[in-house]
Design a binder for these strands. Sequence first.
DNA 1: AAATATTACTTTGAAAATGCAAGTAATAAT
DNA 2: ATTATTACTTGCATTTTCAAAGTAATATTT
Lengths: 147, 147
Amino acid sequence: MNQEFRCDCPITSAIDVLGDKWMLVIIKQMLIEQMETFKDFIEGDEAISTSILTTKLKCLEHYGLIDRKSHPTNKKTKLYHLTEKGLSLTPVIIDLAIWSDQNLRGFNPIMRQSDELESMKSNKEEFIEKLKKNYKEKLATTRYIKS
Amino acid sequence: MNQEFRCDCPITSAIDVLGDKWMLVIIKQMLIEQMETFKDFIEGDEAISTSILTTKLKCLEHYGLIDRKSHPTNKKTKLYHLTEKGLSLTPVIIDLAIWSDQNLRGFNPIMRQSDELESMKSNKEEFIEKLKKNYKEKLATTRYIKS
DNA sequence: AAATATTACTTTGAAAATGCAAGTAATAAT
DNA sequence: ATTATTACTTGCATTTTCAAAGTAATATTT
């Protein structure tokens, strides 16, 4: 978060913020896997450690990609949700999914197959809009009921 | 390049390969700034060090995103070029450019303005195809003439 | 032909980022 | 009242990054 940017290139600046092992993974977990609490992330397949999670959540908040609210009924739980700025990374996430499906299967044999990949490829823009709409709707209704 | 992948998620796998400060920067430098030699990268605005450059070029080659050829007339120069696999990251690069332009200007005040950004946003698919075509055409003709 | 410069590296060691394990404070459940 | 859960923090080890110096092959200059 200090000495933030290497140069004046917009692409490099994006990588200065998002280019590490965790920032985009956390955004993906929120957008696609509906994760919203500290516990959700800790228990995720990617197995992030608590210290890094704390650091990265603060960084995501610093750049305005997520917000952090108290749970309405459980005071010890914090809820992390994507902001519009965070949601606007959906195209990047989807492009990475498509690219990975087409170019990384030979390197990661256990990579899972998704039924959504065909729809992603053929109607990318539509898929992106659906994902974003879906996220916002779930936010507006029943998200934190599990806790 | 060892213990490569965290889990079976395609998006996380893409980040396992591309999620660092350099992999996508180098691909951008090749695609947009027509860099192709070791020296080109060393002298770039991002100021990569020689040891990291060596490591990252090897990694990019390992995943088949670039290839490495001898210069046809200068034997001490190696030429690094994007493969089809590498070129297929163009959508990711463009999405990052658009996102950065819209969301990071407040954090990096020196970020440069590009005339191409409007065209990127309004005709994304077309812009991507043009960039790729352009890259291939330059490769086929006059690239390494400067050396 | 000899000396110098260039290119693409490798090596070394220090600094920074990552990550594990243990601990803590506030709240909730039993 | 005791135990469990959640969201952290702290300390330390490991891994990654990276600057500086060195090297080997080739090219250029004198």
